[in-house]
Amino acid sequence: MKINAKKLSLTVFLPSLVLGLAACGGNNESGGEAKADENYPTKPISVIQGFDPGGGSDQLAQLTQPYLNEILDTTFTNEYVPGAAGAIAWTRLAQKTENDGYTLSITNSPMLMTNYIINEEFTYNLDDFDPIANVVTDPGIIVVASDSELETYEDFVKYLEENPGGLNVANSGVGGDDFFTQLKWMRETGLDMELIPYSGDGPSWQAVAGGEVEASFNNLGVVYSQVQAGNLKALAVFSEERMELLPDVPTVKELGHDVISGSARGYSAPKGLSEEVKQKLYDAFEQLKEDPEFVEGLEKVALPMDVKIGDEYAQFLKEDEELSREIWEDVKDEYEE
């Protein structure tokens, strides 16, 4: 199914939409034979999204693609293939799409890798993709309830030193970015806490605000408005440097624990794009990050821009994969009965 905001005018009545859905079902997306890579792109670029419309992936797509449309003088169309934490879409990208540059996918890390690290059933891996560019990285953050006795990151650490495993700490689900942030942090500090998985970032912070658990490892962009409104207290953030959005919140790194972690989203293609096509896409993202309007759009919704292009993105994914695999090897016995 393709939904194209520009093409669908409001006068389209539903029956035609429904018929359209049926017609698109058997649509073949493979490109033509023509090796017109110098002219790329000559037709719309399809973006497979592994999550529902309105989710984080879609948000990135809607913020990014209007600018990419202009830069590349084409139309990006979204196709939503939700399921198995994005794995259905990524399996399809890896195994069933042409590497002609007309099909891309939004790739979320570490989810892209942790999916197949944790589940042998998933048959794609990083080698099946040509990473194009990372666009945003929403850093991990530790939050507690506003009336919590834990005032600072030091309090949090001290409490766990005195009471090993004595805090219930929420994450957004086993295998998610916050879960891995917790594992990384526990490995770095040698401390132990009780990990409580929830179904998503929202339920995870809500459990803290409602007093059900003591803390949540979450993402800055998700909890920003709650921290601003005083519903939650931020203890520390897992970014390289302090974030402009919350300048008073220290980084975990400056407090002596070298953990950088977060949820990153970018674009990838199936393996084997031609050099010309790759370069055109790289240049497009290069241009994108200089666009002040685009930067402002991200700031408005508290999404920290983190553009990494081509090899830099590939390198970042590779390193993250290795670290995640190592960490999972350590703990997997607890999760596989």
């Binding site: 309105g54 879609d58 948000q59 920003y224 408005s225 601003q228 919704v301």
Partner: peptide, 16 residues
């Protein structure tokens, strides 16, 4: 999904 829609419109859902 509605909340997601607000975000895409550049409106930060939340207490504010």
């Amino acid at each position: 999904v509605l909340l997601g829609g607000l975000m895409i419109h550049g409106i930060m859902p939340g207490p504010t």
